[in-house]
């Protein structure tokens, strides 16, 4: 997994609430057995017409947002299906950070497994950043994971919370399977104890 330390990039404004994972990557693209290559179909049904032409009004099709690395989104981003294809598609497009007032639980966790930082901020802060993002490519937003801050293009800074363990893994690009496997002895002990306490499992 790629590390996330600091990022300064173009932010695309997506004020819509409840952007679900079906919108982020529609199901016809889940038939892959790979993780890569989903970026072209990110937001497919909002981004292209039925015959595959770009819809010019869609934010990521606008010239100033084609290289976005951040999305500033409405409430409850990533709700719905657990598909990890959603963060895979975001990452493949080049998005490394999503900022919103709230995220759906599974999507939020999935981001951290893929080097994407989801940032939760209060409504007023998201509104300020949304306005900033609307200014286009000259308004670069800076996200600093170590310091836990997001800074708008005109220097307004907002602090955010992030779980210490998740932060550690993301800063260092750590694979949590490897970390858990270091605890194999504890798992063995647990299994032995559970086999006596609940032998029907």
């Amino acid at each position: 997994m790629e590390k996330f330390t600091t990022l300064t990039g173009i932010a695309a404004p997506m004020p819509l609430v409840n952007i679900d994972t079906d919108m982020i990557i529609p199901k016809q693209f889940l038939k892959t057995i790979k993780r890569s290559g989903l970026g072209v179909n990110l937001f497919d049904e909002m981004r292209y017409t039925q015959d595959g032409k770009e819809i010019p009004d869609f934010v990521l099709n606008k010239p100033q947002y084609r290289k976005s690395q951040i999305i500033v989104a409405g409430d409850n981003f990533g709700c719905g299906s657990s598909r990890e294809h959603a963060p895979w598609a975001l990452l493949d497009f080049g998005i490394r950070c999503v900022i919103s007032t709230s995220f759906a639980d599974i999507f939020y966790n999935n981001c951290f497994k893929n080097g994407i930082l989801p940032v939760v901020l209060p409504p007023a802060a998201v509104e300020t950043l949304m306005k900033d993002a609307e200014k286009g490519e000259n308004a670069r937003i800076t996200v600093d994971l170590e310091a836990q801050t997001v800074t708008s293009s005109d220097g307004q800074s907002f602090a955010f919370e992030v779980d210490a363990f998740k932060k550690h893994c993301l800063l260092n690009g750590l694979d949590d399977i490897g970390l858990t496997m270091e605890k194999a002895a504890a798992i063995d002990t647990f299994e032995a104890r559970a086999a006596t306490a609940r032998p029907w499992i």
Partner: peptide, 12 residues
Amino acid sequence: IGTSEVEHVLAT
């Protein structure tokens, strides 16, 4: 859970 977690559960 997501696919990375599926892998985590399979392995551990």
